[in-house]
């Protein structure tokens, strides 16, 4: 996509400019999440390998997992119980235990350029941070409406992201990612391309044309802007971004029953529908169904932003219920097995 390539090029230029700019001056300026741009650039141009620990709050418990990462020349390999690989050349691959590699993405399907998060988030750089994996760091803090959302620790020497914490409104850590050990700038060669997939086909991801644009609006609440629309089989995937966080809304035909979702979800309301919220290491997950559709939202944004955004989704055109439709729905709700 021409737009995507142009966007990437212009963002890279911006990142380069900022790199030189930040090196010269000290005081914290509201620059939007440019430090993450610097980190991204650093990750693509520095070779490193190490062990990362991800922690996330799942209901009342904090869970953690360790992953091995190695990166060189813009490629990244993550090894946990899943293996994930990013290559500039052929996109994204994932392998689960028991499966061959599945191709998840092709560079030609890159989403459009992201909005600039500067107007929404305030970034401060208070100074030196605690060492991470034995390396000196500088702190970057992301604020929204006066509240601290994230604390990021970048490697002083290379700008690599070494640690990152996301906080809830009470200041408790919701999610975190931190290197336990890292070797930077070594002679790491790029992660080897996997052998051709054994038995599992690429998941076919196609750019989709929306039949009715109202179904996937260009903007959601709180500055989330549509970046791309994709289709895998019967599922439509719309990707949104506010420049800092990304939000995917998946839509498919059907309805959800309580018996079919994992029991540990937090019950909530999305519009006229009931839904469930879950946490995964990379953020939030919300599922709900309404009007003959099942929706799944996945995002690394804080929960309140995710809920605001999905609650701003319009009811699909033609979904205002007739009286009979309302009676049907009421009867269905009555007959739902309570479990």
């Amino acid at each position: 996509m021409k737009l995507g390539v142009a966007g990437t090029a212009s963002r890279a230029l911006t990142a380069l400019t900022l790199l030189f700019g930040v090196a010269a001056s000290a005081p914290a300026a509201a620059t939007g999440p440019a430090p993450l741009e610097q980190a991204r650039h650093a990750a693509e141009h520095t070779a490193f390998e190490g062990v990362v620990e991800v922690r996330w709050r799942d209901g009342g418990v904090t869970r953690s997992e360790r992953l091995t990462v190695e990166a060189a020349e813009g490629a990244l390999m993550v090894r946990g119980d899943n293996r994930v690989m990013a290559q500039p050349a052929f996109g994204r691959l994932i392998s689960h235990r028991g499966g061959g590699w599945e191709e998840l993405w092709l560079p030609s399907q890159a989403p459009g350029p992201r909005p600039d998060g500067a107007s929404k988030y305030r970034t401060t750089a208070p100074g030196e941070g605690p060492p991470v994996a034995g390396r000196p760091t500088k702190v970057v803090e992301i604020h929204r409406n006066g509240a601290l959302l994230e604390r990021i620790l970048l490697d002083t020497q290379t700008d690599l992201l070494l640690a990152r914490d996301q906080f809830d409104a009470q200041g408790a850590v919701v999610r975190s990612l931190a290197f336990q050990s890292v070797k930077v700038g070594s002679s790491t060669s790029p992660p080897a391309e996997p052998r051709s997939p054994a038995h599992h086909a690429p998941r076919t991801v196609a750019l989709a044309r929306l039949a009715s644009p109202a179904a996937a609006p260009e903007f959601l609440a709180d500055g989330y802007q549509r970046m791309g629309i994709y289709r895998t089989g019967a599922v439509q995937h719309v990707l949104y971004s506010d420049g800092m966080y990304d939000l995917s809304v998946f839509e498919q035909q059907g309805r959800l029953r309580q018996a079919d979702v994992p029991p540990a979800g937090e019950r909530l309301v999305v519009g006229a529908a009931g839904g469930w919220r879950y946490a995964w290491p990379g953020g939030q997950l919300v599922v709900w169904s309404t009007g003959g559709r099942v929706y799944t939202a996945v995002s690394d944004a804080p929960a309140d932003q995710v809920l605001a955004a999905i609650r701003s989704l319009p009811a699909a055109p033609g979904r205002t219920l007739s009286l009979l439709g309302k009676v049907r729905r009421a009867c269905q709700a009555l007959m739902e097995p309570l479990s």
Binding site: A39, V54, L67, V78, R79, A86, L177, W280, G282
Partner: peptide, 11 residues
């Protein structure tokens, strides 16, 4: 940022 966005899928 690849690490932030992608690494969690390793779990």
């Amino acid at each position: 940022d690849l690490l932030s966005k992608l690494a969690p899928a390793g779990v």
